[in-house]
Design a binder for these strands. Structure first.
Lengths: 225, 225, 225, 225
DNA sequence: AATGAATGAGAGTTCATTCAT
DNA sequence: CATGAATGAACTCTCATTCAT
């Protein structure tokens, strides 16, 4: 689909590159920032390096993001944007049992979050949240709360349908979250929590934990592996 | 017991201070450093602040510890010194079943480590280990390896006595360690993994996890709740 | 040649400054550094002062040179770069007698090195070499060795042509170097070796020393004043 | 010769040691300081190290010498004290020819100064004099001026007796001083001025230079090798 | 829009000097 | 007298952020 620009592109490829890039810029910066934040943490990531990895100059970074903190927030937004809406829709449409729903939630979390670079952001927040309260608050409201709300939906659905026992739902949420967080850490701080020589299969671990958690949550009649 | 000095102290508190300090200094500095490292992490803790919290000047800190990294190592040593020897002795003397021994290990870990400030150092290492490889190596050799060795002893005792199934011991160690690490994190990164409104009772959690783990480790005859 | 900018310059000197600076910076910094190193020595020269003299801030210095030691090396390189190549070429082309060549060498050394600020670097190395072994090694390989090699060429030419006596060439080199070093010191440590009230004419001194040295080096037939 | 103290010494050896030491203290400090100043230079010598080498504490150093600069001055005084008076007396008593006197001066300078640690102080002053103007002034008035005065006596004696040509005496002084200074430097900055592999025999060098200088100074009738 | 040179507050570390003991 | 713990100014080097171009 030829656009007006595609014509100019041919005459002036340099400019074209620029123009195309212009739109891509923030995205490239966010990519680079995600990489580096995950690799080194927030404080230890230097703005200049983010810019360099995105192939732009330091100044350009601050053109798009007024500060390192805002850059971080944008990274989070970029990676979370629409996710919860999408998941809420999937859940609306989900027709199986709630135990199956929970299994699905956990598996899908691993596939779409845990296994991706973004899980490094979770680790980063655990590591540096105390030092950057504003970021912690942002992450809390942007990720933690929506995530918990999602899980709450699942648990309440289970309870409403008689599949799950009546329970302190907050506690239930936390039971589901715990293994995810552990996996995240195991993945990103290898040397300290997991012996490097011992491999840990995440899918297997998640599946196992799902059953364990379900064992605790379900009514006798509600449970179905 | 009022001494002559206690009287002088009131008139001339500075003098008293000096006298008391000389020997207490390193300990006070290690206390302050532990507090701050746990609170802010390694990189974000400023030497001057450690000194200030210990009530001395920047220069004094470097009188006792030649660098921030050495200060950190000293904090670790101070809090680990003798622990593993002591535990090994306790284990030598332990006469109960190995499942009981494991329960004991986990409970005692919580009491003596997890519940104390020092658990913050574990969290710190998970957070910043990548950025300070020398510290990571030190922690690995000073804490992680001896800790794993200790657990290995327990597991091998269980296997030898027929209480535990034959297993990949490394994997077993990791199963035991996982909940400890999770608890550590939950404690030190409140906002992120655990919803502040939901309290998590550590003793209860540890006890529960001990049973879960035992469920996986024990032979049918070896298990005794 | 008045350009449009020269007009603007008067209205907006800051802008002009910036533009001029970008490329001039490293040179300005090297100039300032040479001045200060010569004036105060290496250790006593503060980075900030170098920056200030070059009209920039502390940070800017480190933008161009990653450390004070590298700055020093750059100063040496800047002032030595190409010199030895150039001299070797001059020597290749030299057609006169070897005694004349030696006279030329010494005179030209004074003109191009001894009389310039750079001779202060030689003094600096004698003063502080022991405290900065890496710099000493650098200077040794970058200046002392090439310089000695150059002199060796001269002496060996003289021997080969029968103008100089067979000799321990190393010793000969040192005989030539001695007065240069003395002059350097006399120049840069006025108060100590030379009474300030007594002027010492360097050209005259060098010429005299050249003859003295030649007296020792030449064969009867080779010598020609 | 038993003094009252020698009695006490036997009863209380520790105290005796102290008492004896007390008198020796400043001397030990001056010894240590000389060593270190020569080895590292003035600025790079740490007060604490001087104290340590003298076997006392940092505080004690400042008990005897109110500052590092005063310590340095004391080192100079200690090593120069009485020297010039002594030499003046030797010169008063000297009965030989003035050329012999000059030979004697140079030889004796090497034996009593050049060959000793103290020559390092001369090198130090050349190195750091610019950075410590007060020390430079002190050294100038305490060493340089008296030394030059001594040489002036010799030269003027030679002129008066018709052995030396009438001359600019200041220039003559400097001709005598130059080789001494060079030797001093060659000794203390080996790597830079003299190739380590080439040994330079100081006595021989001094003797040679004496004759060279005399060649320039003497009247035809006055000269006698 | 994009650049990258420039900034300057602030970090860890050193050391001459002081002073309570 | 002697100590050595304590100080704090000074140093080198870093990096988020600015702004003239």
């Amino acid at each position: 689909m030829p656009t007006p620009r595609s014509f100019v592109d041919k005459l002036c490829p340099v400019r074209a590159k620029r123009e195309r890039r212009k739109e891509a810029r923030p995205g490239e910066l966010l990519e680079a920032a995600l990489d580096l934040f995950v690799e080194k943490g927030f404080a230890a990531t230097r703005s200049e390096e983010v810019a360099a990895r995105a192939g732009v100059s330091k100044g350009t970074l601050f053109l798009y993001f007024p500060s390192k903190e805002e850059l971080f927030k944008a990274v989070v937004r970029e990676n979370v944007a629409g996710r919860f809406i999408e998941w809420n829709q999937e859940f609306d449409a989900f027709e199986g049992s709630t135990p199956d729903m929970l299994r699905y939630v956990m598996r899908v979390w691993w596939e779409r979050v845990g296994a991706t670079r973004f899980s490094g952001i979770t680790k980063l927040m655990m590591s540096e949240g105390n030092n950057f309260p504003e970021l912690a608050a942002f992450y809390q409201s942007e990720v933690v709360r929506p995530g918990h709300a999602l899980l709450r939906r699942v648990l309440e659905r289970g309870i409403a349908r008689g599949e799950f026992k009546p329970m302190d739902v907050n506690l239930g949420i936390y039971s589901v979250v715990a293994p995810m967080i552990f996996l995240t850490l195991a993945k990103h701080s290898s040397g300290i929590c997991v012996d490097p020589s011992t491999a840990l299969d995440p899918e297997q671990y998640i599946a196992l934990q799902a059953e364990t958690v379900l064992g605790g949550l379900c009514t006798p009649t509600g449970y179905a592996a």
